[in-house]
């Protein structure tokens, strides 16, 4: 297995793999994968109790990618941790591949829940957290949502549910990248103010810079100490983070880079060390 100095270096390698696999597949979602990369990097590199040799161990932490279109970020993390050979990333979205366009829990080792239809992942994470509590497990259930995703009513049904059942083993992240397919959520259908909404629904809310791995780690530590209610970590992020020409561009929500664009992107992603 490759070793990484820290979550930042892990995230950089994730970004390189995301660009490479999207260029190889010719379709997919770079913008929301790159905005979520640092959160997923901290979770998978530093935080989660998971084992690539035993991906189904019952007391493991769970991760539900409620914004399932960021699958490339999840696949990159899993491949870099040796859940499956990294060469397989080039098979993303191809017929017969275990790497589906959106996560499939039965096809890809390390994927805990099939997601892709927005709003549904957070509900399933609630079910997992409830089961874990009933079974007396001491694990944590993580979920990652998009900001546009919170326009789905089901998200708020789940928000009520998690608070009502005091799911303090549930830690959710909101990848607040300010772009959905048709533009800024504020212009499409504003879900703001998100922090006040989650607080009003009974969640503890922590607001951080979603690209600062130290802040992400500190937020998780604080969230784990919370008792009696679920925690939403609202992470301010940049869609397309790390690739200059993709940053803050709605057009890169669901378009893959061509070979030339991928080469340029990769050239921007190199490890400068600490």
């Amino acid at each position: 297995m490759m070793k990484f100095a820290n979550a930042d270096e892990f995230a950089l390698h994730m970004r390189r793999e995301i660009i490479k696999m999207l260029a190889a597949s010719g379709s997919g979602h770079p913008g929301g994968s790159l905005s979520a990369t640092d959160i997923i990097a901290v979770l998978f590199h530093d935080e989660m109790n998971i084992d690539p040799q035993d991906p189904h161990k019952p007391d493991r932490d769970r991760f539900v990618l409620s914004k399932g279109h960021a699958a490339p970020a999840l696949y990159a993390a899993l491949a870099l941790l040796d859940f499956f050979p990294i060469e397989e990333l080039s098979q993303l979205r191809k017929l017969g591949s275990h790497l589906q366009g959106h996560p499939d829990m039965h096809k890809t080792p390390g994927v805990d829940m099939s997601t892709g239809s927005l709003g549904q992942g957070i509900s399933t994470a609630c079910g997992m957290a409830l089961a874990a509590k009933k079974d007396g497990l001491h694990n944590t259930i993580y979920a990652l949502l998009g900001d546009g995703e919170t326009e789905e009513g089901e998200v708020w049904e789940a928000a009520m549910f998690a608070a009502h059942y005091q799911l303090d083993n549930l830690i959710a992240f909101l990848d607040h990248n300010h772009l959905q397919i048709d533009g800024n959520p504020k212009d499409v259908l504003s879900p703001e103010p998100l922090n006040e909404k989650w607080r009003a629904f009974g969640w503890k809310v922590i607001e951080i810079d979603g690209h600062d791995t130290e802040q992400i780690k500190a937020a998780i530590k604080e969230a784990k100490e919370e008792q009696g209610r679920p925690v939403m970590i609202i992470a301010e992020t940049v869609k397309g983070k790390g690739v200059s020409f993709m940053e803050n561009q709605a057009g890169w929500h669901g378009m893959a880079p061509n070979a030339e664009q991928a080469e340029q992107a990769i050239s921007e992603l190199f490890w400068q060390g600490e």
Binding site: P58, S123, T124, G127, M128, L130, K134, E157, M160
Partner: peptide, 26 residues
């Protein structure tokens, strides 16, 4: 009562929670 879960008037979330419980082996 310990294994009965009322989801309230929110059928979509109920099915999602059911799926999450099932993913944990229930």
């Amino acid at each position: 009562p310990e294994r009965f879960v009322n989801a309230g008037i929110a059928e979509g979330n109920m099915i999602g929670v059911a799926a999450g419980l099932a993913a944990m082996g229930k």
